[in-house]
Simulated assay, not measured.
Amino acid sequence: MACVTITNAQAQTPPAPKNYTCYRAEKSISIDGKLNERSWKKAAWTSSFVDIEGDKKPLPLQETRAKMLWDDHYLYIAAQIEEEHIWAYQDKKDQIVYLENDFEVFIDPDGDTENYYELEINAINNTFDLFLPKTYRKGGKAQLKWDIKGLKSAVSVEGTVNDAKGKDKRWFVEIAIPFESLATENVKPVIPADGSEWRINFSRVNWQHEVDATGRYSRKRNAETGKIIPEYNWVWSPQGIINMHYPEYWGKLLFRNEEAGKAR
């Protein structure tokens, strides 16, 4: 889950961070949600996402995976999200997107666990982004007015959106984040070079749902208590705890100068 700490308990033995080698795109990527460029086809997928707590919990009910590329100006991120019921109603910038199903990106360019960035996006391409100078447990306060300047994003859907009559297959997210935009008045951007290593992680928030008489989706409630049933948190590199805001547990992103598919 994105911004709210569900538990303050620390993992006794955090899982080993996963690694991804990010190769260069041979040409500029058109952000249309379709992933049809040759560079995308050559870029490797991450391993399938797992529960945020790792081996403590069962594998996710639906598959999620991601891949990355880069060039002189952008970090490109793509995700494939299997989903039998694709729904999203939040359509205003910086609404709390994780209150519905979403895909989330967490980036700490220098890996010092401070001055990190978060982006959330839903199936109708609405985004919510923020900057954190330090983690919540260290007194950090999310700067919600901060924006990723020049962000490009697009979504494509295999199925329907907000139509509960049938089952859907999946949706794709495609994102281009300008390196220069990962900065604030007090934090300079970190421009990667060959061999640079960042910390990064991805999260998918997935809610059990119900459908009312009008066909509108909503988060499912417990029949006895009336409370909303807690969401699933499926991630690339497991945290060991239900809290994404431990950047030291995120995965490692290694930048290489070789083009995707040409690495020796």
Rank of each mutant, 00 (worst) to 15 (best):
E180C: 00
Y136K: 02
Q239T: 01
A43Q: 01
K56R: 14
Q95I: 00
T5P: 04
K152P: 08
G111V: 03
P133W: 01
F255N: 04
E104S: 13
E26V: 15
M1A: 15
M1C: 13
D163R: 00
F172S: 12
T135D: 00
E248V: 07
W198K: 15
I81S: 04
T113L: 00
A123K: 04
Q62N: 12
E104G: 05
I86S: 06
N257D: 14
E158T: 13
G159T: 11
G240C: 02
K252C: 03
K262T: 13
W236G: 05
D55Q: 08
I31N: 04
T64C: 12
C3L: 14
Y76S: 09
H73Y: 11
G139K: 01
V187E: 03
D194A: 09
I229S: 03
R65F: 08
G215C: 07
Y136F: 06
Y117P: 00
I6K: 11
E174G: 02
I81Q: 10
D91K: 15
I6N: 07
F103W: 05
S39N: 08
Q10T: 12
V97R: 05
L254F: 10
K57A: 14
Y89G: 05
K227P: 07
A164N: 09
I177D: 03
A88G: 06
S39P: 07
L151H: 15
W234K: 06
I124C: 10
F49V: 01
D129E: 15
D129L: 07
I6R: 11
E180W: 02
N206H: 13
K227I: 08
I177N: 03
V235Y: 05
P189D: 09
V4P: 01
P15F: 00
E258M: 03
I148E: 05
R216D: 15
N8Y: 14
D108S: 10
R24I: 05
P109S: 12
Y98N: 08
S47W: 05
G240H: 01
D32T: 14
A154W: 11
F128E: 14
L99C: 06
I81L: 13
V211T: 10
Y74T: 07
P238E: 10
G139R: 02
G54C: 02
G166D: 14
S153Y: 13
R199Y: 01
A213V: 14
G261Q: 05
D112W: 04
V173H: 09
K165P: 01
E259L: 08
V155F: 11
E258H: 06
S203K: 13
K165G: 07
H85Y: 15
Q12P: 06
D32K: 14
W171I: 09
Q95H: 04
W207C: 12
E26R: 15
L35I: 11
K262H: 08
W198E: 05
E158Y: 12
K18G: 09
L99A: 10
Q239F: 00
V205H: 12
D72S: 10
D147K: 15
D108G: 07
P14S: 02
S48I: 07
F179I: 06
Q80R: 13
Y116W: 13
D163V: 02
L35E: 10
T46D: 08
I200R: 01
I124E: 12
N243A: 00
